[in-house]
Design a protein around this nucleic acid. Structure first.
Length: 224
DNA sequence: GCATTAACAGCCG
DNA sequence: CGGCTGTTAATGC
């Protein structure tokens, strides 16, 4: 379990919680470090924890039968995921893998359900979260047909900066071009060129070991 | 042919 | 010195 202060630090959804809710939530959460390349779960596993990224970057993706990996979305520190699988008590539909040394918070299923049954604030959060995920996965359908590298990079950056899924996001984020490549499913070189093109269009600024978003809407809609 | 991997020199912290 | 970046050369589909 974690302290109430720690909970407020890592869980933006607990901001409007009352004392009872905070107490329940903090008792039901443990933290776990992940080394670069570690899998938290594979597609098809049962993982009875709702998961928050506390530090680092975690990739949601799947591995095809041929062994080729497909990226769905990156989740950076501050974002929480897997509520669908916990709620429906189903097997995971994707892998979760740490792109760099990371730290996750795990909330057990019974705590999740207690909040679901008892906390209006948590339910408001869940609705917003699901609504945002729907948009994200609708965009994923387009994305599948959109082959352009700059488009892929733009989408993935826009997701990382999603203000609903990741509310504390500043405009700058430390992420290497290699990591962005892993998220977008591109080589580092290709990612590099895509980034420079997006920079030339004024959508972002490329920095050493990071990017600064200048036009989030422009990135989210790039390639339409 | 195109894109990915490999290799390497410059650069910045 | 170590990690990241930007190129070029080699390789694979």
């Amino acid at each position: 379990m974690i302290s109430a202060d720690r909970l407020r630090q890592i869980a933006f959804w607990a901001r409007e919680f009352n004392e009872t809710e905070i107490e329940q939530a903090r008792r039901g959460i443990v933290e776990k470090p992940l080394a670069k390349g570690d899998y938290l779960c594979h597609r098809g596993d049962r993982l009875d924890f709702w998961t928050g990224v506390v530090e680092g970057v975690v990739k949601m993706g799947t591995m095809s039968s041929s062994g080729k990996s497909t990226s769905l979305a990156g989740c950076r520190a501050g974002s929480w995921l897997g509520e669908g699988s916990v709620l429906k008590d189903e097997l995971r539909r994707y892998d979760l893998v740490a792109l760099r040394d990371s730290r996750v918070a795990l909330m057990n299923r019974s705590t999740f359900f207690w909040l679901y049954e008892n906390s209006p604030a948590f339910n408001r959060f869940l609705i917003r979260q699901f609504n945002e995920r729907i948009s994200q996965f609708i965009a994923l359908v387009e994305y599948d047909r959109m082959l352009s590298a700059p488009g892929r990079v733009a989408r993935n950056i826009a997701w990382l900066f999603n203000p609903v899924l990741c509310p504390n996001a500043a405009t700058h984020f430390d992420i290497t071009q290699e990591e962005l490549g892993l998220l977008a499913g591109l080589s580092r070189q290709h990612t590099n060129e895509a980034l420079k093109l997006l920079e030339a269009k004024g959508l972002l600024r490329v920095e050493r070991g990071g990017v600064t978003v200048l036009d989030l809407a422009g990135l989210a809609g790039y390639g339409e």
